[in-house]
C-alpha cells in the first residue's frame, strides 16, 4: 500500500516535470528554427532594401516597414476599441448588472471568445466592409479600420473575461468600506474597485492586445492586403497589410530556401520579438504590482 503510493507519486511527479521541461524545449526549438530560417535574410538582402517602404517580392523589393506599420496601426485601432469596451463591459457585468443579467452575459461573452476568427472575417467581408464603404464613403471597405473593428471584437471577450475575474476577486469589504463613507456606486468603481483590481485589469488588456497582434485570418480577409506605408491618420481608412497576413498569404508559394522565403521568416522573427516585448512589458507591470503588494504586506 505504502509502497504503491510512493511509486505513483514518483511517476506523477516525473510526468509533470517532463511535460514542464518539454514545453521549454519546444519553445526553444521553435526559436532556433525561426532564427535559422530567418537570419540568412540579413545576409541576402541589404539593410536599405529591408528597411525600404516597398514590399514587392517578385522584383526583389523586400521593404518590411509597410507590413510593420500595417500590423501596428491595425493593432492600435483594435486596442482602442477593445480596451474601453472590454473594461466597460467587465465593470458592468461584475459591478452593475443585476444577477440574472450577469448570468446571461458571462456565458455569452465566453461563447463569443470561442468564435472561430474566420467566421468573424466572413462577417467582415460580407456585412461590415460593404457597410463601411457606403457609410464612410470610401473607395473600398477593406481597410485597416475594418480590420481594427473586427480584431477589437475578437479581443473584447478576452479582455472582458480576464478583467471581470480580476474585479470579482476584489473583496466585497472594499466596496462596503467605500459605500459606508458615502461613495456612490460609480465613485466606488472608479476610485476603489478598479485600482484594487489594477494588475488583473492590466493583464486583461495585454492578453487582449496579444490576441489582436497574433491574429491572422481575419486581418487577411478584411484589410485589403495592400502593403502601403501607414503613417497618417488617413491610413486607417485605406487598405493595409499586416505581418501575419503576409506570412500566411505568401509562405505557401515561395521556393524553399529562396531569399523571399528567408525574409518571410525574418518577418516571423520581428513578430516574435514584438510579442515578446509586449509580454515582458505586461508581466513586468504585473510583477511590479505584485512585488509592491508583497513588500507592503510584509
Amino acid at each position: 500500500m505504502e509502497k504503491s503510493l510512493n511509486w505513483r507519486e514518483f511517476v506523477i511527479t516525473r510526468a509533470i516535470k517532463a511535460s514542464g521541461y518539454s514545453a521549454i524545449v519546444f519553445v526553444l526549438l521553435i526559436f532556433v528554427f525561426l532564427m535559422r530560417e530567418g537570419l540568412p535574410a540579413l545576409g541576402e538582402v541589404e539593410a536599405g532594401n529591408l528597411l525600404s517602404i516597398r514590399w514587392y517580392p517578385i522584383e526583389e523589393m523586400f521593404g518590411i516597414l509597410p507590413l510593420i506599420t500595417g500590423s501596428i496601426i491595425v493593432t492600435i485601432g483594435a486596442a482602442l476599441i477593445a480596451v474601453p469596451f472590454g473594461i466597460g463591459t467587465a465593470v458592468f457585468i461584475s459591478e452593475i448588472a443585476p444577477r440574472w443579467v450577469r448570468e446571461i452575459l458571462k456565458p455569452l461573452v465566453e461563447l463569443l471568445g470561442g468564435l472561430p476568427s474566420v467566421v468573424l472575417g466572413f462577417l467582415g467581408i460580407l456585412v461590415l466592409s460593404p457597410f463601411l464603404r457606403v457609410f464612410l464613403d470610401l473607395p473600398t471597405g477593406l481597410t485597416a479600420f475594418t480590420g481594427s473593428l473586427l480584431l477589437g471584437g475578437i479581443a473584447v471577450p478576452t479582455v472582458v473575461s480576464v478583467a471581470e475575474d480580476a474585479l470579482d476577486a476584489v473583496p466585497r469589504a472594499y466596496r462596503e468600506g467605500a459605500w459606508a463613507l458615502g461613495a456612490t456606486r460609480w465613485q466606488t468603481i472608479w476610485r476603489v474597485t478598479l485600482p484594487a483590481a489594477r494588475s488583473g485589469v492590466l493583464t486583461a488588456v495585454m492578453l487582449g492586445i496579444g490576441r489582436a497582434i497574433g491574429e491572422t485570418m481575419t486581418v487577411m480577409m478584411v484589410t485589403g492586403n495592400a502593403p502601403v506605408l501607414a503613417l497618417k491618420l488617413g491610413s486607417l481608412f485605406s487598405p493595409v497589410r499586416t505581418m501575419t497576413a503576409t506570412i500566411a498569404a505568401e509562405m505557401g508559394e515561395v521556393a524553399n530556401g529562396s531569399t523571399h522565403y528567408h525574409v518571410l521568416f525574418f518577418i516571423g522573427i520581428v513578430l516574435f520579438l514584438i510579442s515578446l516585448g509586449v509580454n515582458i512589458a505586461a508581466s513586468s507591470v504585473v510583477f511590479r504590482a505584485k512585488k509592491r503588494a508583497e513588500r507592503i504586506l510584509s
Binding site: Y174, G177, A180, V192, A196
Partner: peptide, 17 residues
C-alpha cells in the same frame, strides 16, 4: 448624506488601497 452622518467600522479593517 445618511452614510456621512452615520459612520461605520467593520470587523476586518478595510483600508483602501
Amino acid at each position: 448624506a445618511l452614510r456621512r452622518k452615520v459612520g461605520m467600522v467593520f470587523a476586518r479593517p478595510v483600508v483602501l488601497p
